[in-house]
Amino acid sequence: MDSTLMKFPLPALIALLISAAPAAALEQNCRFIQAKPDREACYKRQEEELAERRKPAAPTGESKTLETLRQMRQDDDAVYRSINNICRGC
């Protein structure tokens, strides 16, 4: 067997384990806290962080489009009001 093939999987596996460890540690560290109020506070923080991550992103494209349309409508209304004040055929 080629020695370069044997060297590659080990560093990749180590990198994968290191990257996955903080996420697992974040979820499991609360249960080891002995004091009940501290443990419950830890669980509450985790719950808030999870809720924050699960929030859907605000549809910036759609709201921006609606705001642009509203602004265009206001501009059009201002132009129509100014046109009505022009004397035609005086």
Rank of each mutant, 00 (worst) to 15 (best):
residue 63 S to C: 06
residue 90 C to L: 15
residue 28 Q to G: 14
residue 72 M to Y: 02
residue 27 E to H: 11
residue 4 T to I: 14
residue 56 P to S: 06
residue 34 Q to H: 10
residue 43 Y to L: 12
residue 6 M to N: 14
residue 24 A to F: 12
residue 59 P to C: 08
residue 90 C to I: 09
residue 38 D to L: 14
residue 84 N to T: 04
residue 20 A to E: 02
residue 29 N to F: 04
residue 71 Q to I: 07
residue 3 S to E: 09
residue 84 N to Y: 05
residue 64 K to F: 13
residue 52 E to I: 07
residue 63 S to T: 11
residue 63 S to N: 14
residue 50 L to T: 06
residue 14 I to E: 01
residue 23 A to G: 07
residue 85 N to G: 14
residue 55 K to L: 05
residue 37 P to W: 00
residue 73 R to P: 03
residue 50 L to Q: 09
residue 42 C to P: 00
residue 50 L to C: 02
residue 70 R to Y: 13
residue 30 C to S: 01
residue 14 I to M: 05
residue 37 P to G: 04
residue 85 N to Q: 10
residue 62 E to N: 10
residue 82 S to P: 00
residue 18 I to H: 07
residue 67 E to W: 04
residue 61 G to W: 05
residue 58 A to K: 11
residue 51 A to Y: 01
residue 37 P to Y: 01
residue 32 F to H: 06
residue 18 I to Q: 07
residue 56 P to D: 04
residue 5 L to I: 12
residue 14 I to K: 06
residue 31 R to F: 05
residue 15 A to T: 09
residue 66 L to C: 03
residue 45 R to N: 10
residue 49 E to N: 14
residue 35 A to M: 07
residue 27 E to F: 15
residue 37 P to F: 01
residue 13 L to H: 10
residue 18 I to V: 13
residue 64 K to D: 12
residue 59 P to Y: 03
residue 57 A to D: 07
residue 84 N to S: 14
residue 87 C to W: 14
residue 77 D to F: 06
residue 11 P to Q: 01
residue 10 L to Q: 03
residue 42 C to N: 00
residue 15 A to P: 00
residue 44 K to C: 03
residue 46 Q to H: 10
residue 18 I to W: 10
residue 82 S to E: 02
residue 17 L to H: 02
residue 65 T to I: 09
residue 23 A to P: 01
residue 29 N to V: 04
residue 20 A to M: 12
residue 22 P to T: 01
residue 50 L to I: 04
residue 10 L to N: 01
residue 74 Q to S: 03
residue 54 R to I: 01
residue 82 S to C: 00
residue 35 A to D: 14
residue 50 L to A: 07
residue 36 K to V: 15
residue 27 E to T: 06
residue 68 T to Q: 15
residue 73 R to K: 11
residue 48 E to Q: 14
residue 70 R to T: 15
residue 54 R to L: 13
residue 11 P to S: 03
residue 79 V to N: 00
residue 4 T to M: 13
residue 79 V to M: 02
residue 34 Q to P: 09
residue 30 C to D: 00
residue 31 R to I: 04
residue 49 E to P: 05
residue 75 D to S: 08
residue 88 R to P: 06
residue 30 C to E: 00
residue 11 P to W: 05
residue 44 K to L: 15
residue 87 C to P: 09
residue 22 P to D: 03
residue 42 C to S: 00
residue 32 F to S: 08
residue 57 A to W: 05
residue 81 R to Q: 08
residue 48 E to K: 10
residue 63 S to W: 06
residue 83 I to N: 04
residue 18 I to L: 11
residue 5 L to N: 11
residue 41 A to I: 04
residue 73 R to W: 12
residue 20 A to H: 02
residue 62 E to S: 09
residue 10 L to P: 00
residue 56 P to I: 02
residue 25 A to M: 07
residue 76 D to L: 11
residue 76 D to V: 08
residue 15 A to G: 05
residue 86 I to T: 15
residue 83 I to H: 06
